[in-house]
Design a binder for these strands. Structure first.
Length: 492
RNA sequence: GAGCCAUUAGCUCAGUUGGCAGAGCACCUGACUUUUAAUCAGGGUGUCCCAGGUUCGAGUCCUGGAUGGCUCACCA
């Protein structure tokens, strides 16, 4: 990466010289408007309709095969690549000499007639050609593309130019999110935007980023969830709201974690977590159908059937099934800890029943949940914003959806009792005082909002990036985020 | 944060026991008016990630560092 000093690199030097030569010929190598009337893929897929017709296409030159007084090249636009045929007799001396100076990577606009070569390739016979942008850096090799993952993430623009499968992933990403919006809009949900900078971060158990506002001279937190503001909107009577937006968590980076990632959260008044289960499976199936045309997908070699309805199991039944422990018969914190220790888990001596249950679940059950599965009835200690069950105050009306052993959605019947909510916050504060930096902070304004009355509601959160990973068969979250967080390199 | 692995030309990669730095593509010069990983003839363009050390001699061995990947921990 010593490209800052162009004197050091022969290839860049040569391109600078060609730039100068073009300018000396009176050509503007960083041009302006070009009226594009046709796209590569449309011409290729409708040759009968286009044969013999005049077209105007613009794009990046991706390959060039000169033959003296005639040349073939491939032009790439956002839809794909099409071959062009540039012939001295057709374009004249001046244009042909310009074309000879054009490098792979340059952006050009051409007009010409569509025909098929004797080898059968659909091609534009160029009549006019102009350079729209000179490219001063060489592209990676045509055959292997850009493989270095570090460079692919840091210089995504190059990745997108040379690796069509990268572009396909992000096109699918866009389709999935559009399908999500369409699905929710059809059901009467209102898309809203809530603050990203929070005086008190809430709605999830996670460590936040801190920033500072100079004029107000206050610290603010980047949001870790959308939940508490969206529920304030339920209090305000909007009844069905959703937001698709970035949240920020100050935690480790891995193939499944990026510090900023996209969440979709929705809240529906007068619903509960049962309604959310149906909505979740239908929403995800709809996204798959719209973006991929099927609800049966393959992820990392594993066939996964997203067709509703999905399997439902309570967390305690799941543990009984996979770990052969019946936590309904274990009532004290100490018995629970001992049971987990018997399984070989490391458990701190002060953790409670519900935390132990969750540990056992994560360790012994999650890896088995390959096909879509709703796990219901989470312990109350790890669910400070969910309504507790009428028949068992240790548990809540909450579920998480798992696919390929990963949590994809989290939902519950929302806690709307302000007195209970305040007590939950106080319990979280005690966890915080014990050193748990991820425990929830007290949000007095949220409690006040609940005191005005929030309708009973179901709420749902989906990790959008993970859904996209699943639907694009991407092994790493960085493959579905255009510009993933990277440590900066000091010489760039 | 810990362990393992990787880093060599613009890109993709070789590099033997420690002994002159290599290939393909790209690029440069020339030929070629239906090619398609065009072809033919000629040309190597380099801070071998960085800094030390061992050695007559280091891309190669040792130590430290940088960046990335994978696994683990935390999380979604």
């Amino acid at each position: 990466m010593k490209l800052m000093d162009s004197e050091l690199n022969e290839l860049i030097k040569v391109r600078r010289e060609k730039l100068q030569e073009l300018q000396d010929m009176g050509i503007q190598p960083f041009g302006g408007r070009f009226e594009v009337t046709d796209k590569a893929q449309e011409i290729l897929s409708d040759f009968e309709g286009y044969e013999g017709k005049q077209v105007k296409v613009a794009g990046r030159l991706m390959a060039k095969r000169g033959h003296g007084k005639a040349s073939f090249a491939h032009l790439q636009d956002r839809t794909g690549q099409i071959q062009i045929y540039v012939r001295l007799d057709n374009v004249g001396e001046d244009t042909y000499s310009v074309f000879k100076k054009i490098d792979i990577g340059d952006i050009i606009g051409v007009s010409g007639k569509v025909f098929k070569t004797k080898k059968g390739e659909i091609t534009i016979e160029v009549h006019t050609l102009e350079i729209l942008t000179k490219s001063l850096r060489p592209l990676p090799e045509k055959w292997h593309g850009l493989k270095d993952v570090d460079l692919r993430y840091r210089q995504r623009y190059v990745d997108l130019i040379v690796n069509p499968e990268t572009r396909d992933v992000f096109i699918t990403r866009s389709k999935v999110i559009k399908a999500m919006r369409d699905f929710l809009d059809e059901r009467g949900f209102l898309e809203v935007e809530t603050p990203m900078m929070h005086p008190i971060p809430g709605g999830a158990l996670a460590r936040p980023f801190i920033t500072h506002h100079n004029a107000l001279d206050i610290d603010l937190y980047l949001r870790i969830a959308l939940e508490l503001h969206l529920k304030r909107l339920l209090v305000g009577g909007l009844e069905r709201v959703y937001e698709i937006g970035r949240v920020f968590r100050n935690e480790g980076i891995s193939t499944k974690h990026n510090p900023e990632f996209t969440m979709m959260e929705l809240y529906q008044a007068y619903a509960d977590y049962e309604v959310m289960m149906e909505l979740t499976e239908n929403l995800i199936a709809s996204c798959a159908k719209e973006a991929l045309g099927t609800t049966v997908i393959t992820y990392q070699g594993e066939e996964i059937d997203l067709t509703p309805p999905w399997t439902r199991i309570t967390m305690l039944d799941a543990i009984k099934k996979y770990a052969e422990i019946d936590f309904t018969e274990i009532t004290t914190d100490e018995e629970a800890r001992n049971a987990a220790k018997d399984l070989g888990l490391e458990i701190d001596d002060d953790v409670s029943w519900g935390t132990v249950v969750n540990e056992v679940f994560e360790e012994k059950v999650e890896p088995h949940l390959i096909q879509p599965t709703f796990v219901t009835d989470y312990p109350i200690e790890i669910s400070p914003l969910a309504k507790k069950k009428d028949d068992n105050p240790k548990l809540t009306y909450r579920f998480e959806a798992f696919i390929y052993a990963r949590e994809l959605a989290n939902a519950f019947s929302e806690l709307n009792d302000p007195i209970d909510q305040k007590e939950r916050f106080i319990k979280q504060l005690k966890q915080r005082e014990k050193g748990d930096e991820e425990a929830h902070m007290m949000d007095e304004d949220f409690v006040r909002a609940l005191e005005y009355g929030m309708p009973p509601a179901g709420g749902l959160g989906i990790g959008v990036d993970r859904l996209i990973m699943l639907l694009t068969d991407s092994p790493s979250i960085r493959d579905v985020i255009l510009f993933p967080t990277m440590r900066p390199r000091d010489n760039e």
